[in-house]
């Protein structure tokens, strides 16, 4: 009970859970949702941009590499590319105190070799001009990155970042 009170007094705890189709138009939707979700924590512009980039990378990975939906596609606005594989990306965000945790999960083809995937410039899709910088950006822009994946069993990215790292701006309690 005491612990609970303490948690609440630390301020802002919140959760967000959503699921969307694995198509490219949802990449901007996902990062907008996260940036709106963390806005009450007053992150700096740089922190906001970091989180958006990391989320965009993770969601794009799920769509392109997890489900193989390599074409840009807006339902109803464009001709449907020949092969769109139906799949969902799940995103879960949690704010605890001043730490944001983001989980992005898909049920796609998974990663054969996580260590190799983490190497900057390594990509399995060079023909699509993927730069191979996705995981490098996630690592650079977030404080913590974990990749849980096995071939054929989807992929789950867990990232954490401390926000509002400007204590001199905090109000006295």
């Amino acid at each position: 009970m005491k612990q609970e009170e303490k948690k609440i007094s630390r301020g802002y705890d919140n959760e967000l859970r959503m699921e969307f189709d694995a198509v490219s138009c949802n990449e901007s939707f996902a990062r907008m949702a996260v940036s709106a979700f963390i806005a009450p924590l007053n992150p700096t512009m740089e922190e906001m941009a970091d989180v958006k980039t990391a989320v965009s990378e993770a969601v794009t990975n799920a769509i392109i590499h997890g489900y193989g939906n390599v074409q840009g596609y807006i339902p109803g606005h464009m001709q449907c590319p020949r092969e769109i594989s139906v799949g969902k990306v799940r995103m879960y965000c949690r704010i605890e105190g001043d730490v944001l945790a983001v989980e992005i999960e898909d049920d796609g083809q998974g990663i054969d070799n996580v260590e190799q995937a983490l190497e900057p410039l390594f990509t399995t899709k060079p023909e699509l001009e993927r730069s191979g910088m996705g995981f490098a950006f996630m690592e650079a822009f977030m404080d913590d990155l974990q990749i849980l994946s096995a071939p054929g069993r989807g992929c789950k990215i867990v990232m954490e970042k401390k926000l509002g790292s400007m204590p001199w701006l905090e109000e006295d309690e």
Binding site: A49, K52, T53, S56, T60, S131, M133, F137
Partner: peptide, 13 residues
């Protein structure tokens, strides 16, 4: 206002 690694891919290519 926003660019991710896809932009890097454009420039590299």
């Amino acid at each position: 206002k926003f660019m991710d690694s896809s932009g890097v891919g454009i420039i590299m290519g």
